Computed example of a mutant assay.
Amino acid sequence: MQPHLRFPIEDVSQVGEARRAALHLAGGLGFDPEACGRLALMVTELGTNLHRHVGPGRQAALLMAAVDGQVEVLSLDQGPGMDVHRCLQDGYSTGGTAGTGLGAIRRLAARFDAFSAPGRGTVIATRASADAPERRPVVPPTPGFDIVGLTLAAPGEQVSGDAWTVRTLEDHCLLLVADGLGHGPDAAEAADLMVSLLHRMPDGTASPASILERTHDPMRSTRGAAVTLACLDLTTPSLVVSGAGNVSGRLISGVVDRSLLVQHGTLGVQVRRLQDMRYEWPAHAVLVLHSDGIQSRWKLDDVPGLLQAGPACVAAWILRDHLRGRDDATVVVAAPRRPVA
Protein backbone atom coordinates (compact mmCIF):
# COMPACT_ATOMS: atom_id res chain seq x y z
CA MET A 1 0.00 0.00 0.00
CA GLN A 2 1.24 3.46 -0.88
CA PRO A 3 1.76 5.89 2.01
CA HIS A 4 -0.75 8.64 2.59
CA LEU A 5 0.12 12.09 1.29
CA ARG A 6 -0.08 14.85 3.90
CA PHE A 7 -1.10 18.41 3.03
CA PRO A 8 -0.92 20.98 5.84
CA ILE A 9 -3.70 23.55 5.55
CA GLU A 10 -2.27 26.79 6.90
CA ASP A 11 -3.30 28.93 3.95
CA VAL A 12 -6.24 28.81 1.57
CA SER A 13 -3.90 28.25 -1.41
CA GLN A 14 -2.97 24.85 0.03
CA VAL A 15 -6.54 23.65 -0.45
CA GLY A 16 -6.02 23.82 -4.21
CA GLU A 17 -2.79 21.83 -3.95
CA ALA A 18 -4.60 19.10 -2.03
CA ARG A 19 -7.46 19.04 -4.54
CA ARG A 20 -5.06 18.62 -7.46
CA ALA A 21 -3.31 15.74 -5.70
CA ALA A 22 -6.65 14.04 -5.03
CA LEU A 23 -7.64 14.33 -8.69
CA HIS A 24 -4.28 12.86 -9.71
CA LEU A 25 -5.01 9.83 -7.52
CA ALA A 26 -8.50 9.58 -9.00
CA GLY A 27 -7.10 9.63 -12.52
CA GLY A 28 -4.96 6.62 -11.71
CA LEU A 29 -8.08 4.78 -10.53
CA GLY A 30 -10.11 5.54 -13.66
CA PHE A 31 -12.57 8.00 -12.13
CA ASP A 32 -14.76 9.62 -14.79
CA PRO A 33 -15.31 13.42 -14.84
CA GLU A 34 -18.45 13.17 -12.71
CA ALA A 35 -16.68 11.15 -10.03
CA CYS A 36 -13.72 13.54 -10.11
CA GLY A 37 -16.12 16.42 -9.59
CA ARG A 38 -17.57 14.79 -6.48
CA LEU A 39 -14.08 14.18 -5.11
CA ALA A 40 -12.99 17.75 -5.85
CA LEU A 41 -16.01 19.09 -3.97
CA MET A 42 -15.29 16.89 -0.96
CA VAL A 43 -11.65 17.95 -0.76
CA THR A 44 -12.52 21.62 -1.25
CA GLU A 45 -15.14 21.55 1.51
CA LEU A 46 -12.87 19.72 3.95
CA GLY A 47 -9.88 21.95 3.23
CA THR A 48 -11.89 25.18 3.32
CA ASN A 49 -13.42 24.19 6.65
CA LEU A 50 -9.94 23.64 8.09
CA HIS A 51 -8.79 27.04 6.89
CA ARG A 52 -11.94 28.85 8.00
CA HIS A 53 -12.61 27.24 11.38
CA VAL A 54 -9.22 25.98 12.61
CA GLY A 55 -6.52 28.29 11.35
CA PRO A 56 -2.73 27.99 11.53
CA GLY A 57 -0.74 26.32 14.29
CA ARG A 58 -3.29 23.62 15.14
CA GLN A 59 -2.02 20.70 13.04
CA ALA A 60 -4.70 21.21 10.40
CA ALA A 61 -4.02 18.84 7.51
CA LEU A 62 -5.57 16.64 4.84
CA LEU A 63 -4.30 13.10 4.31
CA MET A 64 -5.08 11.12 1.18
CA ALA A 65 -4.25 7.87 -0.56
CA ALA A 66 -5.65 5.40 -3.07
CA VAL A 67 -7.20 2.55 -1.03
CA ASP A 68 -9.11 -0.42 -2.47
CA GLY A 69 -10.00 1.41 -5.67
CA GLN A 70 -11.21 4.51 -3.81
CA VAL A 71 -9.60 7.80 -2.81
CA GLU A 72 -9.38 8.08 0.96
CA VAL A 73 -9.37 11.65 2.33
CA LEU A 74 -8.96 12.44 6.01
CA SER A 75 -9.22 15.81 7.71
CA LEU A 76 -7.28 16.26 10.98
CA ASP A 77 -6.95 19.22 13.29
CA GLN A 78 -6.36 20.20 16.92
CA GLY A 79 -8.83 23.06 16.80
CA PRO A 80 -11.73 23.94 19.07
CA GLY A 81 -13.84 20.97 18.03
CA MET A 82 -17.43 20.92 16.82
CA ASP A 83 -20.82 19.31 17.36
CA VAL A 84 -20.66 16.69 14.59
CA HIS A 85 -24.35 15.81 14.78
CA ARG A 86 -25.48 19.43 14.39
CA CYS A 87 -22.90 20.21 11.70
CA LEU A 88 -24.23 17.34 9.57
CA GLN A 89 -27.66 18.95 9.51
CA ASP A 90 -28.23 21.16 6.48
CA GLY A 91 -28.69 24.79 7.46
CA TYR A 92 -26.53 24.69 10.57
CA SER A 93 -23.47 26.92 10.34
CA THR A 94 -21.08 28.64 12.72
CA GLY A 95 -19.42 30.71 10.01
CA GLY A 96 -22.25 32.46 8.21
CA THR A 97 -22.35 29.99 5.28
CA ALA A 98 -25.29 27.99 3.92
CA GLY A 99 -24.48 25.19 6.33
CA THR A 100 -24.61 22.30 3.81
CA GLY A 101 -20.89 21.44 3.58
CA LEU A 102 -20.44 18.53 5.99
CA GLY A 103 -23.81 17.03 5.15
CA ALA A 104 -22.97 17.22 1.45
CA ILE A 105 -19.65 15.48 2.06
CA ARG A 106 -21.42 12.63 3.84
CA ARG A 107 -23.91 12.25 0.99
CA LEU A 108 -21.17 12.21 -1.65
CA ALA A 109 -18.80 9.91 0.21
CA ALA A 110 -18.72 6.14 -0.17
CA ARG A 111 -17.66 6.00 3.48
CA PHE A 112 -17.90 8.70 6.11
CA ASP A 113 -16.93 8.83 9.77
CA ALA A 114 -16.23 11.76 12.07
CA PHE A 115 -15.32 12.45 15.66
CA SER A 116 -14.72 15.67 17.58
CA ALA A 117 -14.00 16.63 21.19
CA PRO A 118 -14.27 20.13 22.68
CA GLY A 119 -10.86 21.77 22.78
CA ARG A 120 -9.20 18.65 21.35
CA GLY A 121 -10.00 18.93 17.67
CA THR A 122 -11.69 16.87 14.98
CA VAL A 123 -10.97 13.96 12.65
CA ILE A 124 -13.09 13.23 9.59
CA ALA A 125 -12.50 10.09 7.50
CA THR A 126 -14.04 9.80 4.02
CA ARG A 127 -13.65 7.74 0.89
CA ALA A 128 -14.66 8.76 -2.61
CA SER A 129 -15.83 6.10 -5.06
CA ALA A 130 -15.99 6.04 -8.84
CA ASP A 131 -19.67 5.07 -8.52
CA ALA A 132 -22.35 7.71 -8.07
CA PRO A 133 -24.14 7.56 -4.69
CA GLU A 134 -27.38 6.26 -6.22
CA ARG A 135 -25.54 3.41 -7.99
CA ARG A 136 -23.60 2.12 -5.01
CA PRO A 137 -24.81 -1.30 -3.85
CA VAL A 138 -26.14 -1.57 -0.31
CA VAL A 139 -24.14 -4.33 1.37
CA PRO A 140 -25.35 -5.38 4.83
CA PRO A 141 -22.66 -5.83 7.50
CA THR A 142 -21.36 -9.37 7.90
CA PRO A 143 -19.23 -10.94 10.65
CA GLY A 144 -15.60 -10.00 10.33
CA PHE A 145 -13.35 -7.09 11.11
CA ASP A 146 -13.23 -3.44 10.11
CA ILE A 147 -9.53 -2.75 9.61
CA VAL A 148 -8.07 0.64 8.69
CA GLY A 149 -4.43 1.62 8.37
CA LEU A 150 -2.68 4.96 7.89
CA THR A 151 0.93 5.25 6.76
CA LEU A 152 3.16 8.31 6.34
CA ALA A 153 6.64 8.24 4.82
CA ALA A 154 9.53 9.80 6.72
CA PRO A 155 10.12 13.49 5.93
CA GLY A 156 11.82 13.87 2.57
CA GLU A 157 11.05 10.31 1.42
CA GLN A 158 8.76 9.28 -1.43
CA VAL A 159 8.22 5.73 -0.18
CA SER A 160 7.56 4.36 3.27
CA GLY A 161 9.71 1.75 4.99
CA ASP A 162 6.56 0.61 6.80
CA ALA A 163 3.96 -1.70 5.30
CA TRP A 164 0.83 -3.42 6.49
CA THR A 165 -1.59 -5.94 5.05
CA VAL A 166 -4.49 -8.25 5.82
CA ARG A 167 -4.82 -11.82 4.58
CA THR A 168 -8.41 -13.03 4.96
CA LEU A 169 -9.08 -16.74 5.32
CA GLU A 170 -12.20 -18.78 5.96
CA ASP A 171 -12.60 -18.26 9.72
CA HIS A 172 -9.86 -15.80 10.62
CA CYS A 173 -7.61 -13.14 9.18
CA LEU A 174 -3.92 -12.38 9.49
CA LEU A 175 -2.97 -8.75 10.18
CA LEU A 176 0.67 -7.79 9.59
CA VAL A 177 2.63 -4.61 10.28
CA ALA A 178 6.27 -4.51 9.13
CA ASP A 179 8.82 -1.76 9.75
CA GLY A 180 11.93 -2.09 7.55
CA LEU A 181 15.13 -0.99 9.25
CA GLY A 182 15.81 2.68 8.61
CA HIS A 183 13.73 4.40 5.96
CA GLY A 184 13.71 4.99 2.23
CA PRO A 185 13.76 2.45 -0.64
CA ASP A 186 15.84 -0.21 1.13
CA ALA A 187 13.54 -0.20 4.15
CA ALA A 188 10.54 -0.31 1.82
CA GLU A 189 12.01 -3.32 0.02
CA ALA A 190 12.23 -5.23 3.30
CA ALA A 191 8.70 -4.35 4.42
CA ASP A 192 7.21 -5.08 1.00
CA LEU A 193 8.91 -8.48 0.84
CA MET A 194 7.43 -9.36 4.24
CA VAL A 195 3.96 -8.51 2.92
CA SER A 196 4.53 -10.61 -0.19
CA LEU A 197 5.79 -13.58 1.85
CA LEU A 198 2.68 -13.57 4.02
CA HIS A 199 0.35 -13.71 1.02
CA ARG A 200 2.46 -16.41 -0.68
CA MET A 201 2.56 -18.63 2.41
CA PRO A 202 0.88 -21.92 1.38
CA ASP A 203 -0.48 -22.65 4.87
CA GLY A 204 -2.33 -19.60 6.13
CA THR A 205 -3.69 -21.60 9.06
CA ALA A 206 -0.26 -21.92 10.69
CA SER A 207 0.35 -19.98 13.89
CA PRO A 208 1.81 -16.47 13.66
CA ALA A 209 5.11 -17.60 15.19
CA SER A 210 5.42 -20.45 12.69
CA ILE A 211 4.66 -18.14 9.76
CA LEU A 212 7.24 -15.58 10.86
CA GLU A 213 9.90 -18.24 11.42
CA ARG A 214 9.44 -19.41 7.82
CA THR A 215 9.99 -15.86 6.55
CA HIS A 216 13.24 -15.31 8.48
CA ASP A 217 15.58 -16.84 5.88
CA PRO A 218 13.94 -15.19 2.82
CA MET A 219 14.17 -11.86 4.64
CA ARG A 220 17.96 -12.21 4.87
CA SER A 221 18.17 -10.82 1.33
CA THR A 222 17.00 -7.47 2.77
CA ARG A 223 18.19 -5.22 5.59
CA GLY A 224 15.51 -6.83 7.80
CA ALA A 225 12.35 -5.61 9.49
CA ALA A 226 10.58 -5.41 12.80
CA VAL A 227 7.34 -7.35 12.37
CA THR A 228 4.18 -8.09 14.34
CA LEU A 229 1.66 -10.62 13.03
CA ALA A 230 -1.76 -11.08 14.62
CA CYS A 231 -4.26 -13.85 13.89
CA LEU A 232 -7.77 -12.45 14.46
CA ASP A 233 -10.49 -15.01 15.21
CA LEU A 234 -14.00 -13.61 15.42
CA THR A 235 -15.66 -16.85 16.55
CA THR A 236 -13.91 -16.87 19.92
CA PRO A 237 -13.34 -13.79 19.90
CA SER A 238 -9.61 -13.82 20.48
CA LEU A 239 -6.30 -13.17 18.81
CA VAL A 240 -2.89 -14.81 18.71
CA VAL A 241 0.14 -12.54 18.29
CA SER A 242 3.80 -13.07 17.54
CA GLY A 243 6.48 -10.59 16.62
CA ALA A 244 10.06 -9.43 16.68
CA GLY A 245 11.14 -5.83 17.14
CA ASN A 246 9.42 -2.59 17.96
CA VAL A 247 6.04 -2.83 16.21
CA SER A 248 3.74 -2.26 19.17
CA GLY A 249 0.28 -3.63 19.79
CA ARG A 250 -2.48 -2.86 22.27
CA LEU A 251 -6.01 -4.08 22.97
CA ILE A 252 -7.91 -1.10 24.25
CA SER A 253 -11.46 -0.34 25.36
CA GLY A 254 -13.11 1.92 27.88
CA VAL A 255 -12.04 -0.42 30.70
CA VAL A 256 -9.09 -2.39 29.26
CA ASP A 257 -5.72 -1.26 27.96
CA ARG A 258 -3.44 -4.25 27.44
CA SER A 259 -0.07 -4.18 25.69
CA LEU A 260 0.74 -7.16 23.47
CA LEU A 261 4.05 -8.89 24.10
CA VAL A 262 6.56 -9.41 21.29
CA GLN A 263 10.23 -10.38 21.33
CA HIS A 264 13.39 -8.46 20.62
CA GLY A 265 15.10 -9.01 17.29
CA THR A 266 14.78 -8.32 13.58
CA LEU A 267 13.44 -10.72 11.00
CA GLY A 268 16.09 -11.32 8.37
CA VAL A 269 18.91 -10.32 10.74
CA GLN A 270 18.72 -11.97 14.14
CA VAL A 271 15.81 -13.31 16.13
CA ARG A 272 15.30 -15.81 18.92
CA ARG A 273 12.75 -18.60 18.70
CA LEU A 274 9.42 -16.86 18.28
CA GLN A 275 6.45 -17.49 20.54
CA ASP A 276 2.70 -17.14 20.16
CA MET A 277 0.76 -15.17 22.74
CA ARG A 278 -3.01 -15.65 22.99
CA TYR A 279 -5.34 -12.90 24.19
CA GLU A 280 -9.06 -12.78 24.78
CA TRP A 281 -10.76 -9.94 22.92
CA PRO A 282 -12.72 -7.90 25.49
CA ALA A 283 -16.15 -6.57 24.58
CA HIS A 284 -16.04 -3.27 22.66
CA ALA A 285 -12.22 -3.37 22.44
CA VAL A 286 -10.18 -2.43 19.39
CA LEU A 287 -6.74 -3.68 18.36
CA VAL A 288 -4.10 -1.06 17.60
CA LEU A 289 -0.78 -1.93 15.93
CA HIS A 290 1.77 0.76 15.14
CA SER A 291 5.39 1.23 14.14
CA ASP A 292 7.91 3.22 16.18
CA GLY A 293 7.17 6.32 14.11
CA ILE A 294 4.34 6.71 16.62
CA GLN A 295 5.12 7.55 20.24
CA SER A 296 4.43 4.52 22.41
CA ARG A 297 3.01 6.20 25.51
CA TRP A 298 -0.34 7.32 24.17
CA LYS A 299 -3.72 6.93 25.81
CA LEU A 300 -7.32 7.36 24.76
CA ASP A 301 -9.15 7.09 28.07
CA ASP A 302 -9.35 10.89 28.27
CA VAL A 303 -11.25 11.08 24.95
CA PRO A 304 -14.74 9.69 25.72
CA GLY A 305 -16.56 8.23 22.74
CA LEU A 306 -13.58 7.97 20.39
CA LEU A 307 -13.48 4.15 20.35
CA GLN A 308 -17.10 4.07 19.19
CA ALA A 309 -16.37 6.42 16.30
CA GLY A 310 -14.80 3.73 14.10
CA PRO A 311 -11.29 2.47 13.28
CA ALA A 312 -10.51 5.25 10.80
CA CYS A 313 -11.14 7.97 13.37
CA VAL A 314 -9.17 6.12 16.05
CA ALA A 315 -6.18 5.66 13.72
CA ALA A 316 -6.29 9.30 12.59
CA TRP A 317 -6.53 10.59 16.17
CA ILE A 318 -3.49 8.57 17.27
CA LEU A 319 -1.48 9.60 14.21
CA ARG A 320 -2.38 13.26 14.63
CA ASP A 321 -1.39 13.50 18.30
CA HIS A 322 1.51 11.06 18.57
CA LEU A 323 3.47 11.26 15.32
CA ARG A 324 7.20 11.49 16.03
CA GLY A 325 7.76 13.25 12.70
CA ARG A 326 11.23 11.92 11.91
CA ASP A 327 10.56 8.36 10.68
CA ASP A 328 8.03 6.36 8.73
CA ALA A 329 4.83 5.95 10.73
CA THR A 330 1.98 3.45 10.53
CA VAL A 331 -1.14 2.99 12.64
CA VAL A 332 -3.55 0.10 12.01
CA VAL A 333 -6.81 -0.28 13.95
CA ALA A 334 -9.07 -3.35 13.86
CA ALA A 335 -12.51 -3.72 15.42
CA PRO A 336 -14.94 -6.66 15.26
CA ARG A 337 -17.80 -6.08 12.87
CA ARG A 338 -21.13 -7.56 13.81
CA PRO A 339 -24.08 -8.26 11.48
CA VAL A 340 -27.28 -6.32 11.96
CA ALA A 341 -29.77 -8.39 13.97
Rank of each mutant, 00 (worst) to 15 (best):
G69T: 11
P137T: 10
R324H: 04
R19E: 13
W298A: 07
A22G: 14
Q70F: 01
S238P: 02
E213L: 11
S75A: 14
L152P: 11
P118K: 03
I252M: 09
V67H: 12
D32C: 08
G121F: 01
Y92W: 13
G95A: 09
L174T: 04
E170N: 10
T97A: 07
P137L: 02
D113M: 03
A225D: 10
R258I: 01
A65N: 15
A130R: 06
F115H: 14
T205C: 13
F7G: 01
P118T: 04
L174A: 05
A26R: 12
T151P: 02
H216S: 07
R220V: 09
R200D: 13
G28R: 14
L46Y: 09
V43N: 12
A226L: 06
D302L: 07
G254D: 15
I9C: 04
I318H: 04
A285Y: 02
I294W: 13
L212D: 08
P3I: 09
V241H: 10
V71Y: 06
T235R: 15
P282T: 00
V247R: 11
G182F: 04
D171Q: 15
E45Y: 08
E10L: 06
G119Q: 05
A191I: 01
L169K: 02
G184L: 06
E189C: 08
G161K: 11
V159E: 12
W281F: 00
S248W: 10
S259E: 13
A226Q: 03
G245H: 09
V227I: 15
S248A: 15
A283P: 01
A209F: 03
R220F: 05
A60P: 10
T48Y: 12
W281L: 00
G161T: 12
E170V: 07
A117M: 08
T44F: 03
R273N: 07
D146Y: 08
I211A: 12
S238I: 01
A61Q: 15
R297T: 13
D186N: 14
Q308S: 14
P208V: 09
W164G: 13
D186A: 15
G37V: 04
S210Q: 14
G149E: 04
D131A: 11
T142M: 03
P137K: 03
L176P: 07
D192M: 12
D276F: 00
L287F: 00
F115C: 01
G156C: 12
